[in-house]
């Protein structure tokens, strides 16, 4: 198992599932615990996450799937009977379902109710928690890298696999551009702080602007391909937030950002970018000014 089971004694999942036992499956619209309907495992699977009925349908599917894959073979049939999933058990009373469940695992009903049933509900709650973890939103973080395998890996001939590989490719491009900008911004900060030659600072500022444009273009391309609401790892991040991960940059208007992005997309090389942006003197000044100002301040501090 990828994670250790949490202590579910106080978790709402167990009590929510226990309350579902009264009526069994399927859960009716209006009867579902709002907490269960807010699980990411449910939201991600719902056709329309804003619609309660759609979320209830997704919750029913999640629970059915988990019950069909219940990971304790001895009690699998019992837990399915208990929740009303076994043939002929849907719509029956809890007493009837409990009797069937006790029979399926060879226990006396009383013993089953007191000793076995709570453990089955707890186990199902743990499975539900694990399933939800798979869909948990993760903060933007660079993909973890591992050593390449000794043998050449085989990508399955499968469109979903191809799409996942394509996503990894685009994600890697975004992070490559992001770290490239970060490196240039760090260099620029250091040069300004050290009071480097003005022309050298301007040159480094232009390099940073080029990397900024390329990153903006890569982020836009990524979000075009994997918009919000989809599965993309960065789908819920805004372009501004992603760019801000690289480091501090001057606040620019939409028009200026668009120009840098366009130049970054059409000119992946620095020389081409410089030629494309040559006429944008005001933009160039606005971009470089904070570091040049910082350099002057540092100069004065040093002189004093």
């Amino acid at each position: 198992m990828p994670h250790e089971p949490p202590n579910l004694d106080d978790e709402f999942l167990r009590s929510s599932l226990a309350s579902l036992l009264r009526k069994g499956l399927p859960v009716a619209t209006g009867k579902a615990d709002p907490s269960l309907l807010s699980l990411r495992a449910v939201l991600v699977r719902a056709v329309d996450p804003a619609d309660t009925a759609s979320r209830v349908a997704a919750l029913n599917a999640v629970l059915r799937t988990l019950l069909l894959r219940f990971d304790d073979a001895r009690y699998a049939e019992a837990v399915r009977a208990l929740f009303g999933l076994s043939p002929g058990k849907a719509g029956t009373t809890l007493t009837q379902r409990r009797e069937a469940a006790a029979k399926a695992c060879g226990h006396d009903v009383d013993h089953f109710r007191k000793r076995v049933e709570p453990r089955l509900v707890e186990r199902l709650a743990w499975m539900l928690w694990q399933d939800s973890e798979q869909f948990r939103a993760v903060p933007a973080a660079a993909p973890r890298l591992t050593l390449a395998p000794k043998n050449m890996p085989t990508l399955p001939a499968d469109v979903f696999a191809w799409e996942l590989a394509e996503h990894e490719t685009q994600l890697s491009r975004v992070w490559a551009s992001l770290y490239a900008l970060r490196a240039e911004l760090l260099t620029l900060d250091r040069m300004a702080a050290m009071g480097a030659d003005r022309q050298e600072v301007i040159r480094q500022a232009v390099t940073s602007a080029w990397r900024y444009g390329v990153l903006r273009a890569d982020v836009d391309d990524y979000l075009d391909a994997y918009p919000s609401g989809g599965f993309g790892a960065l789908a819920d991040a805004s372009p501004d937030d992603l760019v801000a991960l690289a480091g501090w940059t001057p606040s620019l208007g939409t028009d200026a950002v668009d120009k840098l992005t366009h130049a970054g997309r059409t000119h992946r090389d620095r020389d081409g970018f410089v030629i494309a942006m040559r006429a944008e003197v005001a933009l160039g000044n606005a971009w470089a000014a904070p570091w040049l100002d910082r350099r002057i301040t540092t100069d004065k501090d040093t002189t004093a």
């Binding site: 991600v44 699977r45 599917a61 799937t65 798979q134 390449a148 890996p153 085989t154 990508l155």
Partner: peptide, 21 residues
Amino acid sequence: PDDIVWAKEREIRRVHELIVQ
């Protein structure tokens, strides 16, 4: 480790669950 080269297992699992759904 071969799997991690082309896609994270987490996303493979997500795709699988969406197909089931």
